[in-house]
Amino acid sequence: MHYKAYCFDLDGTIYRGKAGIDSAIQFVHQLQAQGIEPFYLTNNSSKTRETIQQMLHDMGITAPLEHIYSSSLATAKYVAKMSKDKRVNVVGEQGIRTALLQEGLIITEEQADILVMGIDRQMTYEKLAKASVYVQNGAVLVGTNGDIKFPNEDSFVPGNGSFVHLIANVAGVTPIFVGKPSPLMLQIMADDHGFDKCQMVMVGDNYDTDILCGINFGCDTIHVNTGVTPTAIVKQQAQLPTYCVENLLELIK
Rank of each mutant, 00 (worst) to 15 (best):
3 Y>T: 02
5 A>S: 03
5 A>E: 06
6 Y>E: 04
6 Y>L: 03
6 Y>A: 06
14 I>S: 09
18 K>S: 14
19 A>T: 15
21 I>L: 11
22 D>N: 15
22 D>W: 11
24 A>Y: 03
24 A>I: 10
28 V>S: 05
29 H>F: 02
30 Q>T: 14
31 L>V: 04
32 Q>M: 01
36 I>H: 07
42 T>N: 07
45 S>L: 04
46 S>R: 06
47 K>A: 12
48 T>W: 00
51 T>D: 12
54 Q>N: 13
61 I>W: 04
63 A>Q: 06
66 E>R: 13
67 H>E: 03
68 I>L: 00
68 I>S: 05
68 I>R: 05
70 S>M: 11
70 S>G: 09
72 S>N: 05
74 A>H: 02
74 A>D: 04
78 Y>V: 04
79 V>L: 00
80 A>T: 05
81 K>H: 15
84 K>T: 15
85 D>G: 14
88 V>D: 05
89 N>C: 15
90 V>K: 05
92 G>W: 02
93 E>N: 12
94 Q>A: 06
98 T>R: 09
98 T>S: 10
100 L>F: 08
104 G>I: 01
105 L>N: 02
107 I>F: 08
107 I>V: 06
108 T>Y: 09
108 T>Q: 09
108 T>E: 10
110 E>H: 13
112 A>V: 09
112 A>M: 12
113 D>C: 12
114 I>L: 10
117 M>S: 07
120 D>W: 11
122 Q>E: 14
132 S>K: 01
136 Q>W: 02
140 V>D: 13
140 V>I: 15
147 D>C: 10
149 K>L: 07
152 N>E: 06
153 E>V: 11
154 D>V: 08
157 V>L: 09
157 V>W: 03
158 P>N: 04
159 G>I: 04
161 G>W: 00
162 S>C: 06
173 V>W: 03
177 F>W: 05
177 F>L: 10
179 G>R: 01
180 K>F: 11
181 P>N: 12
183 P>N: 02
184 L>P: 07
188 I>Q: 00
192 D>H: 07
195 F>R: 01
195 F>S: 01
195 F>T: 04
197 K>L: 13
204 G>T: 02
205 D>T: 09
205 D>A: 12
207 Y>A: 15
212 L>H: 11
215 I>D: 08
217 F>K: 10
218 G>I: 14
219 C>I: 00
219 C>E: 05
225 N>G: 14
230 P>K: 12
236 Q>N: 12
241 P>R: 08
242 T>L: 09
245 V>D: 13
250 E>I: 09
253 K>V: 15
